[in-house]
Computed example of a mutant assay.
Amino acid sequence: MTTQPSSPTIAVYGATGHTGRYLLAELRRRALTPILVGRNADRLHAAAAAADLPDAEIRIADLTDHTALVAAFTGADAVVSSLSAYVRNGEPVLAAAIAAGAHYTDISGEQLFLKKVFDDYAAAAETAGVTAIPGVTDNNVPGDLLAHLTARRVSGPAELVMSHLSKSGGNGSKGSAKTVFASLDWFRSGGWHFADGELRTGPAGHPQMTFPGDTAPTAVGKFPQPPVLTVPRHTEVASVEGVLAKDILDTLSSFTTELIEQIPDAPSSDLRYEVIVDAHGDGRVVRGVVEGVDSYRDSALLAVEVATRLAAGTTKPGALAVAEAFDPTEFLDSLARFGITWRIEES
């Protein structure tokens, strides 16, 4: 697609969940009438009514029915996929969006799914003339953009270390827990880091990190951050590693089916966070920090922002990282209207 519609049409798959409600609220704020796609007409109508979107079109399609999904996305300028466990559920929406000629974005946070998008669907998206930007979350978008900016402030290829820090200590949703559980062994292993020009498993090199406002370092462990895959696409780096506070990693590693069923569907009400990217090079560290308001709200806002930008038809076709598609400084600056701020600190 190469032209900007006067009012872009955004299709949403997964509009009935917690993040879906934020997606619909943002679409309504922008005066956009979405297409809601899913399996259950009653739930979709209820979601539209709750969001005060009486004119939203409802289209029914199951994840197992490719033909119905393609039909549901036909006529949309962009598709937003809002699911849990993309490693299990994500491909059908992606494949159908491309087949329907619609741009695509999602709220995935799984390294394994992002790799599949770039390895298996980039050529199909390019052939179809559409752009797919996976992994648009409160963590991944800031991580990718900050990495692009901080790495260029040190001499030579930078060593990048990135983390996501909850400032409130709030709990995530049941859907998020299911996402972790679907790839539990991968999360426990720490997933990939990037070094010596390739993705690698096994131990990496940063056992501690001093978070903003702290004077003492916190014990951290390797965590499968999706920007590990995206950053090397646009930035020359020596290494990229994701880490998370050790106590949070221990909690994630303890997930069981029984424990997940006890987690509330909705997350805590206070979900303030920081995304931190440290670029190590020439004997110093340049730190980038994004401060956000609510992890789920912000992921939804970012997905709508990306979808509406894609609908403009100005990005090159294929599968892209955020920093490949948009100017990092301009994009980060544009988030101030949502209360999402950023800064770079040099030492």
Rank of each mutant, 00 (worst) to 15 (best):
P5K: 11
S6P: 00
S6F: 02
I10C: 05
G14L: 13
G17C: 04
H18A: 14
R28N: 10
T33W: 01
V37E: 13
V37P: 03
N40T: 15
D42E: 14
A51Q: 11
E57P: 04
E57H: 12
A61F: 09
T64V: 09
L69G: 10
A71P: 01
G75R: 08
G75Q: 13
S81Q: 14
S82Q: 13
L83E: 06
S84H: 09
Y86Q: 03
A95D: 10
H103L: 01
Y104Q: 06
T105A: 02
E110R: 04
L112E: 01
V117I: 07
D120Y: 01
A122M: 00
A122W: 00
T127S: 11
T131Q: 07
A132P: 13
I133C: 05
T137P: 01
N139S: 08
N140A: 10
V141E: 07
D144V: 00
D144E: 08
T150C: 13
V154Y: 03
A158F: 09
L165S: 07
G170E: 05
N171R: 14
N171L: 02
N171Y: 04
G172K: 00
G172Y: 07
A177G: 14
V180Y: 08
V180I: 15
S183Q: 01
S189G: 05
G190N: 06
G191C: 06
W192K: 02
H193W: 11
H193A: 04
E198I: 00
L199Q: 11
T201N: 08
A204G: 10
M209V: 14
M209F: 14
T210G: 08
T215K: 13
G221Y: 00
K222N: 03
P226G: 07
P227A: 14
L229N: 10
T235K: 06
A238F: 01
S239P: 11
V240L: 09
L244S: 12
K246L: 13
D247P: 11
D250H: 04
T251V: 14
T251S: 06
S254I: 05
T257V: 13
E258R: 08
E261R: 12
P264K: 09
D265H: 02
P267G: 05
P267S: 11
S269A: 15
D270Q: 15
Y273N: 05
I276C: 10
H280V: 14
D282Q: 09
V285D: 09
V285A: 04
R287L: 10
V290C: 02
E291L: 03
A300G: 15
L301S: 03
L301G: 01
A303C: 04
V304A: 05
L310Q: 06
L310Y: 02
G313I: 10
K316T: 15
A319E: 12
L320D: 01
A321R: 12
A321C: 02
V322T: 15
E324H: 02
T329F: 02
L332T: 06
G339D: 05
I344K: 08
